[in-house]
Amino acid sequence: MGARTETNKGLEIEHTPSSNFAKEIEAEPGGEGISKCIQCGICTASCAVSSFSDRYRPRQLIQKIIIGKRDEVLQSDLPWLCMTCRLCEERCQEGVSPAEIFQAVRHIATREGHIPEVFKSTAEKALSDGWLLGDAYSDFIEDDRDDLGLDTDLGWDNEFTHRLKKKYFSGGEGD
């Protein structure tokens, strides 16, 4: 898939472009728009994360998918840096949603075991407790709720999420 050529400058990695990864993304729900991208850049210009990050560029990431850099993309944390604010989707003139495409990438990455730690641990919390902030529900907050006249028993159900965990995430996040 790639060729390493040694030059006098050192190791120069060259990648051979392939459309296979783009086809794979296209077949994944959410990734259907990948072939519509014309690399105009309006997504990156609109992206709040891009303006404050020196690494994250949605246009660049999409081109990497188009030229088939499967390993690099799936093992990178870049697809997980999208905030899903969807301004790119709103602005894209060709009807592409980079946010949705990166969700599709995340799903494939998850199946192959590449998940950032924070996502893994937070998801685990949601599945075991049924909700995310079980650890944060302190006595003080319970008192606040009482003062406000709100029910202190939050009543979250976790049986359902246990069943989901068994079905979809048994043996470490996999399908």
């Binding site: 729900p29 959410g30 997980w80 899903t84 969700q103 995340r106 799903h107 998850t110 998940i115 996502f119 937070t122 998801a123 949601a126 599945l127 049924g130 909700w131 995310l132 029910d151 009543g155 979250w156 159900d157 976790n158 359902f160 999420t161 989901l164 079905k167 979809y168 995430f169 996040e173 399908d175």
Partner: peptide, 24 residues
């Protein structure tokens, strides 16, 4: 108020598995 519900699955479950997210 709703009782005995669960997290909607936004962001975290959403990114890991589409069907699980839909179920949440």
């Amino acid at each position: 108020h709703m009782k005995d519900v669960n997290c909607c699955g936004a962001q975290y479950i959403e990114s890991l598995n589409r069907s699980a997210f839909a179920a949440m």
